[in-house]
Every structure is written in C-alpha cells, then in structure tokens.
Design a protein around this nucleic acid. Structure first.
Length: 275
DNA sequence: ACTATTTCCTGGATGC
DNA sequence: TGCATCCAGGAAATAG
C-alpha cells in the first residue's frame, strides 16, 4: 500500500525517467472508478504536453505539464494528479512490455517509452487540474515544525492513530507508518489526540520523520502490490517493528505485539512499551 | 465542527 | 481440488 515513502520512491524514479519527455497520445480503459476527471478531459489535458517535473504532495503523484518544450522557468499550465490507492502502480515501460490486466491508462511518450497506470483493486484515482493549483490540504510531515504539528491535535478527541491517518491534517502517513511511528514514540494508538503531552508529541513528530526518511532510503515497504516506477521492490518491510507482527515478540521487551481495530484499520502496538 | 461508520474493489488466504 | 467466505485498507460519503 503506497504511503509517503513509496510514493516518494516512485516519484523520484519518474522524475529521473520521464521529466522533460512529451506525452504524445493517451489511452484510457473503460472502467470509470479510477477517474476523478472525465476521460475526455484527461486525454485532452495530457496529450501533446511536456512533463516539466514530477513531484509528490502527500500520497499524490503530481506531474507538472507544459505546452512549450524547453520553457524551464515557466509555471506549469496543468497538472496530472495520480493517487495510487491500495494497489495502484505507475510504471515506465517499453511499448513491447506485456499489457497486464487492470491497466487503466497508457501514455505514449516522445522518447518511445510508455507510462502505465495499473490498479487491480481500483482504489487509485486519476485527475487533471487546470490551472495548476492542486492542493490536497494538510501539512507535509517531513516539513512541518513542532508548533504546527502540535496544533493539529488541539481539541481533538479522536484516537491519535485516526488523527495521523487524517490526510486533511497530516498528508502522506498511512496505516503502516502510523503504527511504526507510534511504536517508536512509545504512544498507544488509542490515546486521545488532545491528551498527548508536548514531550510525547515532540517524540512522535521525530519518530514520524525518522521512519519516513529511513523508509525512503530503502525504497519503501513492499507489502501487497507496491513496486517503484521501474517495478523494483522496497525493503523497509524488513524493518517493521509492529506492523503485521501480531503475537510476535516486541523487539525491545519481548511482550507479544497486540492488534486492535481503530477506525476500521488494523493497529499494532506493544502493550508494554507504548503508554 | 467533529467523529464514527460504511462503502467501494479484487486477489490471496483460509476453511470445509 | 473446488467453491464460498473473509480480509486487506485510502478516502469519500453518510450518519450521528
């Protein structure tokens, strides 16, 4: 499931492989679920545009698009926004590569390569934004300062785990990294967000930033369908301390890791280390 | 204005 | 082996 580190890995791959390239033609499949903009508008907006830059906002991949090739300092005229949902993939392929099932969009590039959006479970979404002012809301966890971070939770009775997953507050953290960060910070996922001390919030922000940075460094966590833009897997799943480890011993104190459901999501924690 | 719950989807795992 | 059922979860929609 692509969260911030996985999307960042994909975006870096895309920026290297397709920035500066030009979209020549676009094919869109018949399934409507992945489309947040109409197929017609997506095709019209992408076709004959240069990809000036690929970057990330939260869990969204953002392609900046320009009409005029080579206009380096020009602000983008449009943006192509891709959210990978649970099982979405954005791959750079050779045209000869086999067209796998669940391919929903295919963009042919001037370089001869193709961009392919593939998503089995169809929680992923495609959209175009004109003018180019996409803003998903929330703050970037790797950029936010402690005061702003602490302010996100003021007055919130919801469990901290739910608050961390709320993309309108903090964008990019999903189920895996929320659990991993709470474990490192020693905070139980069910704690009411507003009840957490400043010191614990400071630890939590540090833990979030550390876990995200470490995960980016090894290409993200490959569980479920995640792969990078070139189809490569990540390795951070080997460093998970609590996620997916129900019943297994805590790496610090050997107490069995517990799992409970918060807001319909599995939450994993050590009952000894997390208070 | 918040918070909690339900819904959308399919492949892989599980159980009989 | 085969078939039914369950489970995973991001975020929008709905309900309270």
């Amino acid at each position: 499931m692509p969260e911030l580190p996985e999307v960042e890995t994909i975006v870096r791959g895309l920026q290297t492989r397709v920035a500066g390239d030009r979209i020549q033609s676009v094919w869109i499949g018949s399934r409507k679920q992945p489309l947040k903009s109409s197929a017609k508008k997506i095709v019209a907006t992408l076709t004959d545009k240069q990809i000036s830059r690929v970057h990330r906002m939260g869990k969204h991949i953002v392609f900046d698009l320009q009409n005029n090739a080579g206009a380096v300092n020009q602000s983008p005229e449009a943006q192509w926004i891709v959210h990978l949902g649970m099982t979405g993939r954005m791959l750079v392929c050779e045209p000869e590569a086999e067209a796998v099932k669940h391919t929903h969009l295919l963009a042919s590039l001037a370089s001869g390569r193709e961009l392919r959006f593939i998503d089995a479970r169809m929680f992923g979404r495609l959209a175009v934004v004109t003018p180019a002012k996409f803003d998903p809301g929330g703050v970037e966890p790797l950029d936010v300062d402690l005061a702003t971070f602490a302010g996100l939770f003021r007055g919130r009775k919801t469990p901290i785990k739910s608050a961390l997953l709320n993309q309108k507050l903090l964008r990019g953290v999903g189920n895996i990294y929320a659990d991993e960060a709470l474990a490192r910070a020693g905070v139980r996922p069910r704690r009411r967000a507003a009840s957490i001390s400043r010191a614990d919030l400071e630890r939590l922000l540090s833990a979030i930033q550390a876990v995200l940075r470490e995960a980016i460094e090894v290409g993200g966590s490959s569980v479920s369908d995640y792969v990078g833009a070139d189809g490569e897997e990540g390795f951070f799943q080997l460093q998970h301390r609590v996620y997916g480890r129900e019943g297994e011993p805590c790496l610090v104190c050997k107490t069995p890791i517990r799992r409970l459901v918060i807001a319909g999501r599995s939450s994993h924690y050590c009952p000894q280390c997390q208070k």
